[in-house]
């Protein structure tokens, strides 16, 4: 019990003393995971729309792959992205291994299937009557899509929340492709792992509290955005 108290006290100390290292790590975590979620949304929403609304051969097969990729283990993603980004790998010339950019790429790979899968499922669930109605009112293709996406906005926000939650909490991929480099590619989860292996449990607990508060705050903001529009 004493350890938990020490951790909580350490957390408050780190937060309120404005420790520059912890502040930097927290900001980087938010930046990397936010960027990864954004990229996944930009890539995932169009793909999810195509899979959800269009009919083409192999669609069910692709959907099965996407759905099983929703639970892609971060260490597996970390390993494969590493293989591609290493100096000896096919994308070695980009020279982005062990950088925050590499973490963004790996986390996008983790979040993308979640956005695709959930948005496709949501679009498929929109009722046939609404689709017919929109068409009957003379909407062009763009308007049709926009209106349909409006119908599923709650599910879309849920997809974004799920994607963000998956990437901000993962450690395996960040460790593998970021390298946990001090002051450069160290994020909250990899920093926590390091502090545990150093035996600095109070700092580790403090970091875990900061991570949970951060994840909760972002999710709460997204949830409020999601719920705000429900009535109107």
């Amino acid at each position: 019990m004493e350890l938990i108290w020490q951790g909580i006290i350490e957390a408050f100390r780190l937060i309120f003393s404005g420790d520059p290292e912890v502040f930097g790590i927290t900001l980087l975590t938010l930046r990397v995971s936010g960027m990864a979620t954004l990229i996944s949304l930009l890539l995932g929403l169009p793909l999810g729309t195509i899979i959800g609304l269009c009919h083409f051969p192999g669609r069910k097969f692709i959907l099965s792959i996407i759905n099983s990729s929703m639970g892609l283990p971060p260490v597996v993603v970390g390993l494969w992205v590493s293989i591609f980004l290493w100096r000896s790998g096919p994308f070695g010339f980009l020279n982005i291994m062990y950088t925050p950019t590499a973490i963004i790429i790996a986390q996008s790979v983790i979040a993308c299937p979640i956005i695709i899968g959930l948005s496709a499922a949501a679009l498929q669930q929109t009722s046939e009557k609404i689709r017919l109605q929109i068409r009957a009112l003379g909407a062009n293709k763009f308007q049709y899509l926009l209106l349909l996406l409006g119908e599923i906005k709650l599910s879309l926000m849920a997809a974004v929340i799920a994607g963000f939650g998956a990437v901000i909490s993962e450690v395996g991929a960040s460790m593998a492709v970021g390298g946990n480099i001090k002051g450069y590619s160290r994020v909250l989860t990899t920093a926590t792992v390091l502090e545990v292996s150093k035996g600095q449990f109070d700092v580790a607990i403090a970091l875990s509290i900061i991570l949970c508060v951060l994840a909760f705050t972002v999710t709460a903001i997204l949830t409020m955005l999601q719920q705000k529009r429900q009535g109107g």
């Binding site: 900001l27 938010l30 930046r31 936010g34 960027m35 979620t37 954004l38 949304l41 926009l146 209106l147 996406l149 409006g150 906005k153 879309l156 926000m157 974004v160 903001i221 997204l222 955005l225 999601q226 529009r229 109107g232």
Partner: peptide, 19 residues
């Protein structure tokens, strides 16, 4: 005036600011 657009825009803004 579609609500979805404003929700998504807000999201992009928030993440964009952080990023």
């Amino acid at each position: 005036k579609h609500p979805l657009l404003s929700v998504l825009l807000c999201l992009v803004l928030i993440i964009g600011l952080a990023v």
